[in-house]
Design a protein around this nucleic acid. Structure first.
Lengths: 360, 360
DNA sequence: GAAGGTCCGAACATTTCCGATCATCCCCGG
DNA sequence: CCGGGGATGATCGGAAATGTTCGGACCTTC
């Protein structure tokens, strides 16, 4: 148990570091009753060390200037329904504590809509933009030129165009999907698989990185690459997907491949269904790791997945953007300030039932 | 049985280290009655060595002016004189606003010293460590195993060992030296140079990335690679360096190479001197970009350099580490929290006099 | 505007700690 | 072997800190 002063220091530190504390959370963290925390806060408030508010405490500063310079930040993502909601939620979760108000724009995967959305946001007076740009129908050069023409700081999320200086100069926050693929292959290798198949939904910016990581992992671990297919979109042409998956399973059978990495958990779910239909057992006869973790938990066999840190991606993107915005106007005297930041967040492996026993 | 002085020492040490002691715990730890500890504390309090509070004792400091508990962070760098001072200064600049107190350890490029320093810092109770590990005399696997054995969060700066999952799982902050080399080549190419030489001080972890970036830039821009040498250390064997530089200049002359990228600005300064000695003009007859910006401004001809963002590197490393520390203990309920972060900061080109007219 | 949830405040209960007193132990000289 | 004195330990009533309970205020949501 703690000394009162230790609690006080904890509270002061939380307030300083995060800007606020909640009584309930502090009580849980320190293992004491809320009333104790409240009494501490009252005392510290009287001493002028923090400001008591409903639910906890904040810094005296933020209490003095309640609406302390709100920052308006725009977010432009291709879709508000798939893939990006966790990212946006991550940003929303962090926004209050950074005094940020978010405005969302959806580009529907169309460059001209995207440009219009950005213009709209700039017109609204946003001080920075987080954008997951559409790469289709547009060369990297065009993309770079456009992004650099935006008159406010821009952070690019989940897109990476290597080998183009103009794009490198932009702040970027992305998942390290190559590492995610490595995790998957390592997991399967640890479970004893010596031949691993690969099925990738190539019509996404993520796909090349998954392929890249798969290739390096296979080479490094001395595992044999099994069949390799490019999957079509599932909706719209279910029959086409069926055919591809069926052919993939045939080739796995023919090559003795009993472990696969499937990009997009939705595709993986279809693959598992197809495998079960032909009497294969999952994971006994076919171990499946899905890349992406949208609906993987709800598959017939809950899928072991590579889980990209999408929520954190949003948080991090916002953090970088706000750092850029306040850094710019704060005029920091650190000299070489403002170097572009490239942040890569590493995916995690979520072990469920589609691969057999978990590795140690 | 303990002597009174031993108890006093114990109490003072606990107070110093952790900020407080509880009578009950100290009594249990020392195997004496609480009343004894209390009497000790009364005595030490009277002597002004600590401050007595209900339940135990705290430091006199925190009793006088309770302040937010400092986060104690360790920094371990190979050298306190070259390359790393800006990094450490960057950390120092940011530390106060993050309520961080830094403790520095120097490893002298020796793994065993490094390990001892980390142990010492952990013993001091640091809550996290920023380390630029020594890669010499040690395999990446050993390095990874050791870093993972450290019981507090670790952020690795300025080192990148690709293709090892165990190391990838650690937070990393580094300069993108490959991009730096690309900047240099692009600059020279914009100035019209179609053949570019390369001289690298290979005995550093930076060197491979410079070579990599140089190679990709040359390939991408369609520039011809000129002579390519590996330079020895300058101090200790000045004559050897002279010979290498002279041979390098010979080969540049023979191949018509009139632009070079030289890794380490100190080496570049020597090269410029050698070039001037043989009557060449810089930049007219030989354009030089130096990689690194330690003393480049003070060269005979102020050197155009690639400037790695070392200060910012320190700031960013500290930011990542503190985020990890407070994130960990806060126990965030955001689900996939704690994904390893890899941050790359991009170097900038600092145009001085060694390349001729600045590009637009 | 009603329902539900969260937080607060006050009164009361409980735990923990303190201080005073007295008992005990140990070292040591006589 | 005895006894003194300093240091340590035990006990207990009271004080301080902490926990519990519950009614009510405030906010959000539908």
């Amino acid at each position: 148990m703690h000394l009162p002063t230790a609690r006080h220091e904890y509270l002061l530190r939380e307030v300083e570091l995060r800007g606020s504390v909640r009584s309930a959370e502090a009580a849980a963290a320190l293992g004491v009753a809320e009333v104790t925390i409240r009494r501490d806060i009252v005392e510290l408030d009287r001493a002028g060390r923090l400001a008591r508010v409903h639910g906890g405490a904040v810094t005296v500063r933020s209490a003095r200037e309640p609406q302390a310079a709100r920052v308006l930040v725009g977010v432009v993502v291709p879709s508000s329904t798939v893939h990006f909601p966790p990212l946006v939620r991550g940003m929303e979760a962090l926004a209050p504590s950074l005094h940020v108000r978010l405005v969302l724009g959806v580009s529907q995967y169309r460059p001209e809509v995207e440009a219009a959305q950005v213009d709209r946001l700039v017109g609204l007076g946003v001080q920075g933009i987080v954008v997951a740009p559409t790469t289709r129908d547009r060369s990297p050069e065009e993309l770079a030129a456009w992004l650099r023409s935006v008159p406010v700081p821009v952070v690019v999320v989940e897109r990476r165009v290597d080998g183009l200086t103009a794009l490198s100069e932009l702040d970027q926050v992305r998942s390290d999907h190559a590492h995610g693929a490595v995790l998957a292959v390592e997991h399967l290798a640890r479970l004893g698989h010596r031949r691993i198949g690969l099925a990738v939904y190539d019509r996404t910016p993520t796909a090349p990185h998954v392929r890249e990581g798969f290739a390096t992992a296979v080479a490094r671990l001395g595992v044999a690459p099994g069949p390799d297919v490019s999957l079509p979109k599932g909706e719209g042409d279910p029959a086409g997907l069926e055919r591809e998956l069926s052919a993939f399973l045939d080739r796995c059978r023919d090559t003795g491949t009993r472990a696969v990495l499937v990009h997009t958990d939705d595709h993986a779910a279809r693959l598992v269904e197809a495998a079960l239909d032909r009497g294969l057992r999952v994971p006994e006869d076919l171990a499946v790791v899905a890349y992406d973790d949208e609906n993987a938990e709800l598959a017939v066999v809950p899928l072991t997945t590579v889980t990209p840190p999408r929520r954190e991606l949003g948080r991090e993107a916002l953090r970088v953007l706000v750092g850029r915005i306040v850094g710019d106007e704060g005029g920091e005297v650190t000299g070489a300030h403002g170097s572009p930041r490239h942040v890569a967040l590493l995916p995690r492996l979520t072990v469920r039932g589609s691969c057999g026993a978990a590795a140690p």
